[in-house]
Design a protein around this nucleic acid. Structure first.
Length: 532
RNA sequence: GGUCCCAUCGUCUAAUGGUUAGGACGCUAGGUUUUCAUCCUGGAAAUAGGGGUUCAAUUCCCCUUGGGACUACCA
């Protein structure tokens, strides 16, 4: 069985198979006699998971992790990973949201094999046999399900106005009462309801939850979680504009798309009873639920803008490598055990196990991401490194070879690709102010500095260009010079380094010489000598 | 207010009914070095509190405290 290695809950599988009733004394709770729908699906042995974001904003780090875990699980199980877009909220939908979600997933390598995707031309396309995957296109189906629910007595039309409900809520809050729908339309006569509908009275459709008893959710991460029905509000499933709400749409779509495992954020845990109610009403087989711990701001609230960048594209633009982002995000809430820190996407897929996901939320703290990004930057081949980093040099200098040497010079100390411009700026500066940064080492006098720099100039002048570009040869030559004259490293190398960098702290003199090349290095040294 | 979830170094985490509670990032001290970074070697740093169960609890149970999510005709 595909769920057999959820090692945590052997019994859970048993229960899933025998399909326990979640209702207590069902007949008493559902007095309206209905035929139970029997749309049983065959037990699907293939793992099918989905990431179902709404295009109400750009893909953020939390969404990426949810998508990634779905992806890793699908890869691990050789199952399907579906991307569905939940665009049922017309007012909050953001222009370009779908494109951004697809693009961010694409750039980080979290690629679904079914559903919505973006092609090379940037066009949104749909792939797969369970479509449409744009939720708004499934409206007809959602209405069929809603009608069926009404027929079964599991849902009812509600004519309460938003204004009245808002006032009700306000009053409840003021009186410190639990907020919730007061059930005004719950027991409306069928004839009366029909009359109002045909008269065009605006209405929504609500689920009719049991008034007593409880539901138990079996969650892979959290085990059994119980809710009392009486705490749960009759949920709107069709809005007055005819659009379904998440609860109906996602549940029905998951079923229609034969989703076997629902991996989603923990914020959905408390509405899962509503979804189970729908599965039960239709006698559908439940998926396995995996509610992921939240990713948190530094103050431990749910991750949000306001407290820093959270968009995946923000991090891409800042110069974080996809491998680093994926590695970091994967380990935020899950860990394959052991002391390893660096994992490739393939390794993650190989090792991924939902049963080992943490319960507690995790703070998104970028300091480790920086370290990781530096690690991946250093692991890149030179060519790949140049591809990532050279665009930041646009318009700075025409000498490509020099730019490449400059990029290599600072590679080890780079945390993100975009900071390269700032870190290498001194290399391209016209001249330095040696009044500010002393060329002299400790209490060295000016004559000594001059002597050393002139000697270095002579050595470099007599070297072949190709040798000047070789760090090791430069080092050998200059160390010979120092030894021959009985000088100290400090009183020769410090002035040289400052002459070349104009800074107290910089890369070493040998690598600087080799980065500049003969002509540029000599220019720097000359101007330093002149300043003395 | 109600419901539900959660709790190991600052952060991400590992571990077990018996451990000097491990690793990583960050911080920090020293070494290497002309400076910085790298690199190497150290250091500080955690089981929220209180009750049980047990020979033994950080681990299992309960309570408290703290944090969080949800509480929409948003997802």
């Amino acid at each position: 069985m595909y769920f057999s290695d959820f090692s945590s809950e052997g019994a859970m599988n048993q229960e899933r198979m025998t399909k326990i009733s979640h209702f207590v004394n069902e007949d008493a709770i559902f007095p309206i006699s209905t035929e139970r729908s029997t749309i049983n699906i065959m037990s699907n042995s293939k793992v099918r998971v989905r990431f179902a974001p709404s295009p109400t904003g750009f893909l953020h780090i939390g969404g990426l992790r949810t998508a990634l875990y779905n992806h890793l699980f699908a890869q691990h199980k050789k199952g399907d990973f579906v991307l569905r877009i939940e665009d049922t909220d017309r007012v909050r939908t953001v222009e370009g949201g779908i494109e951004n979600i697809c693009q961010s997933l694409k750039e980080t390598g979290v690629i679904p094999n079914e559903g919505i995707w973006i092609d090379e031309k940037g066009e949104i396309v749909e792939r797969g046999t369970h479509g449409p995957y744009l939720q708004s296109k499934r409206q007809k189906r959602h209405h069929e399900y809603a009608d069926e629910l009404i027929r079964m007595g599991k849902a009812y039309p509600c004519f309460c106005t938003e204004e009245r409900l808002q006032e009700l809520r306000k009053k409840q809050q003021l009186e410190k009462q639990p907020t919730g729908y007061d059930g005004t339309c719950r027991n409306l006569e069928a004839d009366e309801a029909k009359k109002r509908i045909s008269n065009g009275v605006p209405h929504v459709i609500r689920l009719r939850f049991p008034e007593q008893g409880s539901v138990i959710i079996h969650d892979v991460i959290r085990g059994k979680v119980a809710f009392d029905w009486k705490e749960i509000d009759d949920q709107v499933i069709i809005k007055s504009d005819g659009m379904p709400t998440y609860h109906l749409a996602a549940t029905c779509d998951d079923h229609d798309m034969e989703i076997s495992h629902v991996l989603r954020g923990e914020e959905w845990l408390s509405s899962t009873p509503k979804h189970i109610f729908i599965y039960e009403a239709f006698n559908w087989e439940l998926p396995i639920f995996v509610h992921l711990p939240l990713i948190l701001n530094p103050d431990k609230s749910k991750l949000s803008k306001r407290q820093g960048d959270v968009g995946v594209n923000d991090y891409i633009e800042k110069g974080y490598l996809p491998e680093a982002i994926i590695n970091f995000v994967a380990l935020l809430g899950w860990n394959p055990k052991g002391d390893q820190e660096i994992y490739s996407h393939e390794e993650l897929a190989e090792l991924f196990d939902p049963a080992k996901i943490n319960k507690a939320g995790g703070v998104f703290d970028t300091s480790k991401l920086n370290w990781m990004n530096n690690h991946y930057l250093r692991a890149l081949s030179e060519d790949d490194y140049f591809k990532k980093v050279l665009p930041s040099f646009e318009g700075i200098d025409d000498d490509l070879a020099f730019l490449k040497r400059s990029a290599l010079l600072v590679r080890d100390r780079l945390e993100t690709t975009v900071e390269i411009k700032e870190v290498t700026a001194f290399l391209f500066r016209a001249g330095f102010d040696f009044q500010e940064i002393p060329l002299a080492w400790k209490d060295q006098d000016a004559d000594s500095v001059k002597e050393r720099l002139e000697a270095v100039r002579e050595v470099l002048t007599n070297m072949e260009e190709s040798n000047v570009l070789n760090i090791q040869i430069v080092e050998n030559e200059l160390k010979n010079l120092i030894e021959k004259n009985g000088w100290g490293n400090g009183d020769t190398l410090w002035p040289l380094r400052v002459a070349l960098s104009g800074m107290k702290k910089s890369p070493g003199p040998f690598e600087l010489v080799a980065t500049y090349g003969k002509e540029r290095a000599l220019q720097r040294i000359d101007s330093a000598i002149k300043s003395l």
